[in-house]
Design a protein around this nucleic acid. Structure first.
Lengths: 214, 214
DNA sequence: TTAATATCGATAAAATAATATCGATAAAAT
DNA sequence: ATTTTATCGATATTATTTTATCGATATTAA
């Protein structure tokens, strides 16, 4: 009903990081500027931003307001708690990853079969404490960084404990109930996809006879 | 010209991991089975798979061949070398990440201003050695895990050294030449997006009066 | 050998997303 | 004050993606 396309939602964080990292004193940004820097269609940018706030003709969008509106819309102001399950190298890296805080996600702790370890800023706890903590603190979001062979079983137990959304780093397909939202992040395929794009780009430049790109 | 949609390409790794992790002795898989397990439209699955190989009516797709074809298509058999730039927690985690090997990406080494460190299986080298190694080994792919404030400058120097594709973990927009392929991975926004999806799903279930979903 | 069934593949239709165009508005310049 | 210019917003067009439908094919069983 609110009719915001998934594609648009995917681009909104892009605008946000762009606006945030762009060091400038200008109070206004125009959609055309953004589109040029991000190499997107200007109308597309305008249409996306129109979902979030309205700009002023001739001047553009008030930069600070736009950032605030994007953060508001994306729900970054809401403070969510999350846990990490699996304290291997990746899990521990994410446990100390500073970026989550900035987007309003508070990572409480990591859990691992190896048991307690409080040498880091945030604790690593034994997996046996997970169920209790998740229920007591009403945590709904989990980051899953266990080895692939264990992922399905662990995910099932997370579901049983009341977790409703899982960011899954294990390269397996999780079979869970319909109500659980699963978002897969496969670092290997991201990289492999990049390698493929590169290979394709090279092919194209090597065989320009085939290209009739008009 | 080869007209494979971007959406399809995004789904192919999904099929691959599904086929790989699905423990079964069956030699054949049907597109309908896949679509049910992955909760996709069966025709969509069939159409996607048709880009890669052809199945047999009545029996389905030969499982091993399908895996091989997907890997072949996605270029996982080609062995690419990559480097990691920025050996913080995330960079080191990725350096030892076992998943890349499986997809035909060989991570040679990580580079960091902190200098050499060979305590891990793969070396962390001083950033001063980067240019030489990239040029000597003709490395084209870099994984960028430096802090956000340094990302743009480092990326520029990578471009100068001959890197042609960057998997960027820094939450900033990189401004580089057109020929450099940049793929952004923002772990924080992935998680934030998940949190938002969860919030939306709850809203929907709380206010069913608004829903006229048919 | 023939009929029934499950599955593929191709074509068509519907839904969704991206782009182009045009008029309106407000700031700046003459 | 009027013209010019840059930008937004809305509508319309085009392209892409997803879904539905139909016929063909091979396997199984009678």
């Amino acid at each position: 009903m609110q009719g915001i396309s998934g594609q648009t939602i995917k681009r909104l964080p892009l605008y946000l990081t762009y606006l945030k990292t762009r060091k400038t004193d200008e109070t206004y940004v125009s959609s055309t500027t953004i589109s040029e820097d991000l190499r997107l269609n200007p109308v597309l940018v305008r249409k996306d931003l129109a979902c979030v706030m309205t700009g002023k003709p001739k001047v553009g969008f008030l930069r600070e307001d736009l950032i605030a509106a994007l953060e508001e819309y994306l729900g970054y102001n809401r403070l969510d708690s999350a846990i990490i399950v699996g304290a291997g190298k990746l899990g521990r890296a994410l446990l100390d990853y500073p970026g989550f805080d900035a987007y309003g996600i508070e990572v409480i702790a990591a859990f691992d079969i190896s048991g307690d370890d409080r040498t880091s800023a945030r604790p690593v706890l034994g997996i046996d404490k997970l169920d209790d903590i998740v229920k007591r603190m009403h945590i709904k979001i989990a980051i899953l960084t266990v080895p692939a062979p264990n992922a399905q079983d662990v995910a099932k137990s997370l579901e049983a404990s009341g977790i409703e959304a899982i960011l899954n780093f294990a390269p397996v397909h999780l079979s869970l109930g319909e109500s659980v939202i699963v978002k897969n992040v496969n670092l290997a395929t991201e990289l492999a996809g990049l390698a493929k794009s590169l290979a394709e780009a090279k092919e194209k430049s090597n065989e320009p006879k085939e290209s009739r790109d008009h």
